[in-house]
């Protein structure tokens, strides 16, 4: 094959490559344009919440300014009022108590169960694992009326111990299910190491 015959083909190859890279660049640009559009949609509410938190009462009441920007200057008044003139600190403490209790209960229960279900076998363990997955799929709103009745019967209706009792319903099956996957995976890899 002579060089003269080869030349056009090389040329065509170069052209193809440059058109490919042009296509690639266009694909990238369209990707970015659409991603920016989606990011704006996803970030509108958090942005608006942050902006509004730093506005003064006067600006909110005037209603003439653009709600999307802070026109009268940034102020920390709202945070000061929240912390000093409301019961927010009490609510915050309640949140922390409930969270710590629920996370502790959930971790103890689900780490124990996930370890035994993922690594050991016992009579009915397969059925139990499936059952946990199914309870994870049960939405909280299906059970809130009977749970309300139970919490009421226990006299826990207006205390955070009611929440500490009810929240593990939602968290335990989820955590156990996730951790069964991990503990059976680590069993598999440690078995490989032994082999």
């Amino acid at each position: 094959m002579s060089t003269a015959a080869l030349a056009p083909r090389v040329n065509a190859g170069l052209q193809l490559r440059s058109s490919l890279s042009r296509n690639r660049r266009w694909a990238l640009i369209t990707s970015y344009v659409f991603l920016v559009a989606f990011a704006i949609f996803f970030l509108i509410p958090p942005y608006y919440m942050i902006v509004t938190a730093f506005k003064s009462d006067a600006e909110m009441a005037r209603m003439a300014t653009n709600p999307w920007i802070i026109a009268d200057g940034i102020t920390l008044d709202q945070f000061r009022i929240l912390l000093t003139q409301t019961d927010f600190l009490t609510f915050f403490r309640n949140t922390i108590i409930v969270t710590v209790c629920v996370v502790t209960i959930t971790m103890v229960v689900s780490v124990l169960a996930a370890f035994s279900l993922g690594r050991m076998k016992f009579w009915g363990s397969g059925v139990l694992a499936t059952g946990i997955f199914l309870t994870y799929l049960v939405p909280d709103t299906l059970l809130f009326i009977p749970l309300f009745q139970i919490v009421k019967a226990l006299g826990l209706l207006n205390s955070y111990w009611g929440m500490v009792l009810v929240y593990p319903t939602l968290t335990v099956p989820f955590c156990t299910w996730i951790m069964i996957g991990y503990s059976s995976q680590s069993r598999r890899s440690s078995m490989k190491r032994h082999l």
Binding site: L112, A113, S116, V172, P173
Partner: peptide
């Protein structure tokens, strides 16, 4: 032992 470790979970469920 495995069964006992699952017991708290079963009670909750």
């Amino acid at each position: 032992i495995a069964f006992l470790m699952c017991l708290p979970l079963m009670i909750i469920i």
